[in-house]
Computed example of a mutant assay.
Amino acid sequence: MLQEERKKELKKQIFFTSIKLFKEYGYDNVTVEKIASSCGIAKGTFFNYFPKKEHVLLYLGSSQNEYLQEVTQKYKDVKMKQRILFIFKELLFIYLENSDLLKLTLSETIRSALKDESRNIDLFKETMTTLIEEAKINKTINTRFDSKYNCLCSCRNLF
């Protein structure tokens, strides 16, 4: 178990170092070699955790999905319209703080989704769909849209 903890810690170190370097030098100016040397690891060790530099951004995207789950739970006792507003407000705050990195992350997520390598967009859609379905069951919203396929339209229809 100790070895698994060390692996998790090293992955986090690589991730946070990469993000720091991306912010400082710009994503395109940071190489895997630069990340590895800044972490004090071999280039091959980087590839044990991330197949490509782009996967650091995908990892950021998946961590944002984890954050979305936390925020969703945080407001579970709030009325649906207010809950969705709070969720988007918190996500917007994170976006504004890290807009350059999150733009890159979104771009890479979309590019990867087209290659069917990422589930970040699907996870976001599933979370929002679940919220809307819950609201429909509880009769706290009334919408003609099928939330499974049109969760964003349903959100817009709430307001």
Results as ranks from 00 to 15, higher is better:
residue 70 E to W: 14
residue 97 E to R: 12
residue 92 L to W: 04
residue 79 K to N: 12
residue 100 D to Y: 10
residue 92 L to P: 01
residue 85 L to V: 05
residue 80 M to E: 08
residue 68 L to W: 01
residue 79 K to R: 13
residue 90 E to W: 11
residue 77 D to K: 14
residue 99 S to E: 14
residue 104 L to W: 01
residue 108 E to M: 11
residue 108 E to Q: 15
residue 103 K to G: 11
residue 105 T to D: 09
residue 76 K to N: 11
residue 67 Y to I: 10
residue 83 R to M: 05
residue 81 K to P: 00
residue 75 Y to V: 04
residue 84 I to T: 08
residue 74 K to D: 11
residue 70 E to R: 14
residue 75 Y to L: 07
residue 84 I to E: 02
residue 86 F to E: 02
residue 95 Y to E: 00
residue 88 F to Q: 03
residue 99 S to H: 11
residue 93 F to C: 00
residue 98 N to V: 07
residue 71 V to W: 04
residue 105 T to F: 08
residue 77 D to H: 12
residue 98 N to T: 10
residue 93 F to S: 13
residue 83 R to V: 03
residue 75 Y to T: 05
residue 78 V to P: 04
residue 93 F to D: 13
residue 106 L to G: 07
residue 80 M to Q: 04
residue 76 K to V: 11
residue 76 K to M: 09
residue 87 I to K: 04
residue 85 L to K: 08
residue 74 K to M: 15
residue 109 T to E: 12
residue 75 Y to R: 03
residue 99 S to C: 02
residue 97 E to P: 06
residue 92 L to K: 13
residue 92 L to N: 12
residue 109 T to F: 08
residue 78 V to Q: 10
residue 83 R to T: 07
residue 100 D to L: 07
residue 106 L to Y: 06
residue 67 Y to P: 08
residue 97 E to K: 14
residue 109 T to D: 02
residue 81 K to A: 06
residue 74 K to R: 15
residue 99 S to I: 04
residue 76 K to G: 02
residue 102 L to S: 02
residue 69 Q to T: 14
residue 87 I to Y: 01
residue 103 K to Y: 12
residue 72 T to G: 02
residue 90 E to Y: 09
residue 85 L to T: 01
residue 99 S to P: 09
residue 69 Q to W: 10
residue 93 F to H: 14
residue 89 K to R: 13
residue 78 V to E: 13
residue 87 I to G: 00
residue 86 F to N: 02
residue 99 S to T: 06
residue 91 L to M: 15
residue 88 F to P: 05
residue 107 S to W: 02
residue 84 I to W: 02
residue 102 L to C: 05
residue 70 E to C: 13
residue 86 F to G: 04
residue 108 E to C: 05
residue 67 Y to R: 11
residue 92 L to M: 12
residue 91 L to I: 10
residue 71 V to Y: 07
residue 67 Y to F: 15
residue 90 E to F: 08
residue 86 F to L: 12
residue 80 M to S: 05
residue 67 Y to G: 01
residue 74 K to Y: 13
residue 98 N to D: 15
residue 73 Q to L: 14
residue 68 L to Y: 03
residue 102 L to A: 08
residue 107 S to C: 07
residue 72 T to R: 07
residue 75 Y to M: 10
residue 69 Q to M: 12
residue 70 E to N: 14
residue 86 F to K: 10
residue 83 R to H: 05
residue 82 Q to T: 14
residue 74 K to P: 00
residue 107 S to P: 00
residue 99 S to Y: 13
residue 84 I to S: 08
residue 91 L to C: 07
residue 98 N to C: 12
residue 108 E to P: 04
residue 108 E to R: 09
residue 91 L to F: 07
